[in-house]
Design a protein around this nucleic acid. Structure first.
Lengths: 239, 239
DNA sequence: ATCGTCTTTACAAACTTTTTATGAACCCTT
DNA sequence: AAGGGTTCATAAAAAGTTTGTAAAGACGAT
């Protein structure tokens, strides 16, 4: 793909759509817009964008349903736009496989940063993910065979669950991971309500990997939603 | 050359050197290490290794210069280790006659595969690691034919199962070996649940090879997971 | 029958995970 | 801007497994 990255914007507010289109186009992206989920799906099949930005509240097929249908046919990164107070819906969207969310109102710069992050992640070498024996991400180095972990060169010791949690975070760097997702991945589907487990383990993990556990740099809290892992906080800065 | 293939490791990072040495020795290679290019050249003239593994960034004579000087006097296969993002230097090294390169970080298995490939290409003794008759790894010396073992020069007597267990450990130095893996390897697939066997045999083995069985240096426990064998514990464990 | 080895059993010590409790942080409403 | 209700961070206790070790029983070879 030597072309500009293609971004599909799905939103029923013409004003917001216009802002997004001009903002994204001026940064070199190729942008197309659709006014509802149905039109969005058609545009996707037609145009094969590299990233989809969708609002949640929409006529016809809404943002949630759009996520579901897109995930059924594609791994395209999805960024969800949502109004404040739609926490529950946001979580649903993320559980359905959305990559990130931005809460309205937002600055165009914030959205652009998230777009860059998602595109980078999508293009990033998911090389031999299944067979990779070494994970290397930002300040983190993990040898899955020897189960040795270093952060910025310093070796650390993790318990098995802590190890699994960190590996999961690294493998989904940048994505917003909901509590449910994390619990299902690490404890199994019967434990998706045990948020306390997560709190304790995230806390312990932070104590071991964060320079200052009180102001985390790597494992970021998304209140009401879940956590987000940033392996290299200098690059992903938003402001 | 009836001996094991000889490998010269040139690297100024003691930790990496140690990993390479134990990893290669445990597979039946004869290994010598040098801390910089100058020492590497001397060792080469002295010892005539069958293969040279060298880092790029080093004090005194660096990896590039080492390649150049080696090529002036020998066709010995050279494998270059390089950090991420040293693409340009990598190309230079290959132009100078290096045979292969491996990007850090790498798994020991990847390096071993390249070593085998380079030796094969060089028509070096096609000695199969699997048929090596002597293992030399850290403080351990094992003769697979006579089934004799010395630890730090002291001969010890092991029962057959203990012997097989130790050999398995040595051949997989540094890796964490799960209970299942060990049980399957030594007792067969029907015994993968018999963790008690393992406990007893590891305990007995420790009594015979550890200076102090109560605080093991060689056979390390990975709680909930399995065991890890470290043939050459120089750096004291981090807690 | 004896010896050496492997298997089985038992229990305390060590370690991880789960549970509980408390104060701080956060979001929404007024 | 302030208050109520949740959620989050943290420490520490409780519960549950696993591990280390000794020792007894089983098996086979000499």
């Amino acid at each position: 793909m030597t072309d500009q990255p293609r971004i599909l914007v799905v939103d029923d507010e013409p004003q917001l759509t216009r802002v997004l289109r001009t903002g994204l186009k001026s940064r070199g992206y190729d942008v197309r817009a659709a006014a509802d989920g149905l039109a969005g799906l058609e545009a996707f099949n037609d145009w094969h964008p590299d990233l989809v930005i969708t609002d949640l509240a929409m006529p016809n097929v809404d943002g949630l349903e759009l996520c579901r249908r897109l995930r059924a046919i594609s791994q395209v990164p999805i960024i969800v736009l949502s109004a404040k107070g739609e926490e529950k819906t946001k979580v649903e969207a993320l559980d359905l496989g959305a990559d990130d969310f931005v809460t309205k109102p937002f600055g165009i710069d914030e959205l652009l940063a998230r777009v860059r992050a998602s595109l980078r992640r999508a293009n990033a070498p998911p090389i031999n993910e299944a067979t990779a024996t070494v994970l290397d991400s930002g300040d983190f180095h993990v040898d899955l065979e020897s189960r040795e972990i270093t952060v910025s060169g310093k070796a650390i010791h993790l318990t098995p669950k802590e190890f699994d949690l960190l590996v999961y975070f690294i493998r989904h760097s940048g994505k917003v991971l909901t509590h449910r997702t994390l619990l299902a991945a690490l404890w199994g589907g019967n434990y998706v309500e045990q948020n306390e487990y997560l709190r304790v383990f995230v806390g312990n993990l932070r104590k071991k990997i964060e320079p200052d556990a009180a102001t985390p740099r790597y494992i970021l809290t998304e209140p009401w939603i879940g956590y987000r892992f940033d392996p290299d906080p200098q690059i992903t800065q938003i402001k």
